[in-house]
C-alpha cells in the first residue's frame, strides 16, 4: 500500500510543476489583431482615419452599447443621427480578425444598421475603427473597417 502512495506523491509534485507553468506562451497567442501598422492601409483610395470622425463615431458606438434597451424611440432617433454621416444605412462594416502573411482575414461583413443593433443588443462596444473610406465628396462614409480593441 505504501508503494503506490509514494508513487502518487511523485505524480502530484510533477503535475503541480506542469500546471503551475501554464504560461504566457498560450496567452500571447490570443491577441485579437496582430497587425502592427495600426490604422494605415496602403491602398490609394482609402484615406487614413480622420481622428475627429473616428472619436466621434466611437463615442456613438459606446453610447449605443450603454443605451436603455427598452427606449427604442431614442435609439432609433440616434441611429438616424448617425446615418447622416454615412452613404446609406447599408454601408458595409468589416471587422478585421487577424493578419497573416500580409493578408487580412475578416468576420462576416455586415451593414452599419446591423452593427448598431449589435452594439445595442449585446451591450458592448468591443471594436475600434481602423479605417473609414469616404465618398468622392469626402463627406459621407462608404465603408468602415474595424478591429477588436486591444
Amino acid at each position: 500500500m505504501h508503494q503506490p502512495k509514494r508513487y502518487l506523491s511523485v505524480y502530484i509534485l510533477a503535475l503541480m510543476a506542469l500546471f503551475s507553468c501554464k504560461a504566457s506562451n498560450q496567452a500571447s497567442k490570443t491577441d485579437q489583431v496582430d497587425d502592427p501598422d495600426g490604422q494605415v492601409i496602403s491602398s490609394a483610395d482609402v484615406i487614413m482615419v480622420d481622428k475627429r470622425l473616428k472619436d466621434m463615431l466611437e463615442s456613438y458606438f459606446d453610447m449605443f452599447s450603454e443605451m436603455d434597451q427598452e427606449d427604442t424611440a431614442t435609439r432609433d432617433a440616434k441611429m438616424a443621427e448617425v446615418f447622416e454621416y454615412f452613404n446609406s444605412p447599408d454601408t458595409p462594416v468589416f471587422l478585421v480578425l487577424y493578419n497573416r502573411e500580409g493578408k487580412r482575414y475578416y468576420d462576416k461583413p455586415m451593414t452599419i444598421t446591423d452593427y448598431i443593433y449589435y452594439l445595442n443588443d449585446t451591450r458592448q462596444a468591443p471594436h475600434t475603427i481602423r479605417t473609414l473610406k469616404l465618398d468622392e465628396t469626402q463627406t459621407k462614409i462608404m465603408r468602415v473597417e474595424l478591429a477588436v480593441k486591444q
Partner: peptide
C-alpha cells in the same frame, strides 16, 4: 483502491 480516491482529491486540488 485508495489510489483512485486519492487521485480524485488530487484532481479537485488542481
Amino acid at each position: 483502491k485508495t489510489n483512485s480516491k486519492f487521485l480524485v482529491v488530487v484532481l479537485a486540488l488542481f
